[in-house]
Simulated scan of single mutants.
Amino acid sequence: MTTTTDPLVSTDWLAAHLDDPTVRILDASFKLPGVTPLPREDFLGAHIPGSAFFDVDVISDHGLSLPHMFPSEGHFAEGVGALSVSNAHTVVIYDAGGWVAGPRAWWMFLAFGHTDVRVLDGGLQKWRAEGRAIESGEVDPVPARYTASFDQGFVRSRQQVVANLDSRAAQLVDARPQPRFEGSVPEPRAGLRSGHIPGSRNVPYAKLFDAATGTMKPLGELRAAFKDAGVDLDRPIVTTCGSGVSALVLTLALYRLGVRGTALYDGSWADWGQADGPPVASGPA
């Protein structure tokens, strides 16, 4: 099923498709380390009817020390198949609100070849504010067959980003809050240096949505946020953040603005900011 070229769907649209057998709904909520209750516990307490929980820490490469790195094709296929998702389904992803994680799962599906995927505008925050139905407790999805085909162009490695320091072929755009980008506050993950990748620009992801409603801002305001940060939408862009999650809020906004071909630095600051990592800059961009 195809709805629109816009990667977002409204709460009205989802409410009208709750019983549509061609639609699968996933809660991809995520929190920074140490924040409780855990996202899965929140899911058990309240979720959109018919949804399953997409755990970015489970559907990831467990052979790496970095958090929730992209998994193999087989692991992704096994993980989403267990959530009752097949290649034929329209996948609608939401998070708790605040846009921290839904776009990450959206980008993963696109990277693994699933183009019929959308993000719920406003997430569970807007859904509940409108008084819509919720469920609680465990769910037991019926496993489905899923085949994944990974496009490496959707992500960048540390080596590629290091090479870009000299070539400046792509613009690096960091989604972290300004104090973390400038290095004036410590990182939430222990042992990481503070600051940003040299030459990168800062578009804090929270600037791209309305905190009161949880919805993403109009296209004109999205465009202005990138322009004000010195980002040229006609040049290649790689997004980054703390650990490769909130960067995809930027990617989603860029996608809505018609920008294609962006990539994610999957390791992000959890990789770059290590004590023995590459050069670090501090202060304003």
Rank of each mutant, 00 (worst) to 15 (best):
T2P: 05
T2Q: 15
T3L: 10
L8A: 03
V9Q: 02
T11E: 00
D12M: 07
D19L: 11
D27K: 10
A28M: 02
F30R: 10
K31Y: 12
R40P: 01
G45K: 13
D55K: 03
D57G: 13
I59A: 14
L66I: 09
L66Q: 04
F70S: 10
P71E: 05
V80I: 15
L83N: 07
S84M: 08
N87Q: 06
H89M: 01
H89L: 03
I93A: 01
Y94A: 09
D95N: 05
G97C: 14
G102M: 03
W106D: 02
W106Q: 02
A111L: 03
H114V: 02
H114Q: 12
H114A: 04
D116Y: 00
L120P: 06
L120A: 04
D121C: 11
Q125T: 09
Q125A: 11
K126Q: 13
W127C: 04
A129V: 08
E130G: 14
R132P: 05
S136N: 07
A144S: 03
T147I: 01
Q152L: 05
V155N: 06
V155Y: 07
R156N: 04
R158L: 08
Q160W: 09
L165E: 06
V173W: 08
D174I: 05
F181G: 04
G183V: 13
G191W: 12
G195F: 14
I197A: 11
I197E: 10
G199M: 13
G199R: 08
P204T: 09
K207F: 15
A212P: 07
G214M: 10
G214C: 11
M216D: 04
R223K: 15
K227N: 13
D232T: 06
D232Y: 09
P236E: 00
T240I: 02
G242R: 01
L248S: 11
V249I: 11
R256P: 02
D266P: 03
G267Q: 03
S268Q: 08
W269E: 06
W269P: 04
D271Y: 03
W272E: 07
P284K: 13
A285V: 11
